[in-house]
């Protein structure tokens, strides 16, 4: 028990800290940060651990959001059950698509996901318009059940709920990072052929990693669906696909807190910038180029390496003085 607390205590502290920020910051901002950081974690898991870059993340998030939305619009009123439906839809979809996609080499993988996203958008916007009601979207905010302890329409209730979910995901990811599977994922990223020659089935490892990452995206999708009480095709717009790439790279891929830090900075900036600037593509695009040119290291890795760099500098100074 103590050992578990020692391993995972930091995560609980960090997300409790985000909750405490509620005293100073608006609830909507913190909710957005929490959900988006979960979504970014999905991207970071794929790129940082498996070395796969997906330009189609919105598709996996969108499928789950629509799972929840369709359930709450047509069938039930229980938001938790709706979330379950959405997550199951997202995981099943990722399982099937993953079986095909993880066989592809990295360039094919990225582009195939981009195509998937475009097609997903089209399907929900037009092909299934009689079910999804196209751009009008599905509305069900008033239909969702409310309980005394958990009322999704109360921002503070929702923030608490989202933070607990996020902390749970971070704990799972950290656990995986420490497991043999986590090491195998990194090994696939570094040298897939070598791992095959150690006897591992890399196809299955990549498939499971892919499904895990997209399950995380699915959780983010269902959280959005119950938070807004509304879902429309805009959630899987191809235009929004690079957003998560920017945020992921900004925070630093593969690091545990990178997605949270990146999201925090990005959304704060977006809120400040969009008030004066309508052409957000200019901002996101420029940031993407700058982050890449800066060496794709991300804020989190800069923060992590700063103390070591300082120590090295100090040692260097001492040795050159002596």
């Amino acid at each position: 028990m103590m050992r578990l607390l020692k391993t995972y205590g930091t995560i609980l502290l960090v997300f409790a800290g985000v909750g405490v920020l509620r005293l100073a910051l608006p609830g909507a901002f913190l909710i957005h940060v929490t959900i988006f950081s979960i979504y970014t974690m999905a991207f970071s898991f794929l790129m940082g651990r498996l070395g796969l870059v997906s330009f189609g993340q919105p598709a996996y998030m969108g499928i789950a959001a629509y799972g929840t939305g369709l359930y709450l619009h047509y069938f039930g009123t229980n938001p938790l059950l709706g979330m379950m439906v959405g997550i199951i839809a997202g995981v099943a979809f990722a399982g099937v698509i993953g079986g095909l996609f993880v066989r592809l080499s990295s360039s094919y993988f990225t582009l195939a996901n981009l195509a998937l996203c475009a097609i997903g958008f089209f399907v929900f916007q037009r092909a299934l318009v009689h079910i999804t009601r196209g751009d009008t979207g599905l509305w069900y905010l008033g239909r969702m059940e409310r309980w005394p302890l958990l009322n999704f329409r109360d921002p503070d209730h929702f923030l608490t709920f989202a933070l607990i979910v996020a902390a749970g995901i971070w704990i799972v990811v950290k656990g995986l990072d420490r497991s043999v599977f986590g090491a195998a994922c990194l090994a696939v990223k570094a040298n897939e052929r070598k791992l095959q020659f150690l006897g591992y089935n890399t196809y299955r490892i990549k498939w499971l990693g892919f499904v895990m990452a997209n399950s995380i995206a699915a959780v983010a999708g269902t959280l959005y669906a119950v938070y807004f009480g509304f879902v429309s095709p805009a959630i899987m717009d191809v235009l929004r696909a690079p957003e998560v790439v920017v945020v992921g790279l900004l925070g630093g891929v593969g690091s545990l807190y990178g997605p949270l830090i990146g999201t925090f900075v990005y959304i704060a900036m977006q809120d400040l910038v969009s008030a004066i600037f309508v052409y957000w593509e200019l901002v996101v695009g420029t940031m993407l180029v700058l982050v890449m040119m800066a060496g794709e290291r991300g804020i989190a890795s800069l923060l992590e390496s700063a103390p070591r760099l300082l120590r090295m500098r100090a040692r260097h100074d001492r040795s050159s003085a002596g």
Binding site: F55, S107, V289, M292
Partner: peptide, 22 residues
């Protein structure tokens, strides 16, 4: 590598789309 060019060029594309809208 391919990944790098893909992400960076997506950035260029977005900047361009923003400029065209402007």
């Amino acid at each position: 590598g391919v990944m790098f060019s893909m992400i960076t060029s997506y950035g260029v594309l977005l900047v361009g789309i923003g400029a065209i809208k402007y």
